[in-house]
Amino acid sequence: MEIGVDRERCAGAGMCALTAPEVFDQDEEDGRVRLLTARPVDGQRAAARLAAGVCPAAAITLGD
């Protein structure tokens, strides 16, 4: 699984950092998404998938 984030689309709501804190963080300054790892390991994938699903701005993409 490879994760992509679009900081232009990001609304800074924090749903990703709340749902998958090992994969996503929020920028200290503007609150927008920061990717901690583009390739989450086994125990992180389900949360990453959920985070992509709940992102209000559809700013997270999941690749193979």
Partner: peptide, 8 residues
Amino acid sequence: LTGRFTVR
């Protein structure tokens, strides 16, 4: 504003 209301 979003930077002021982050999860952290």
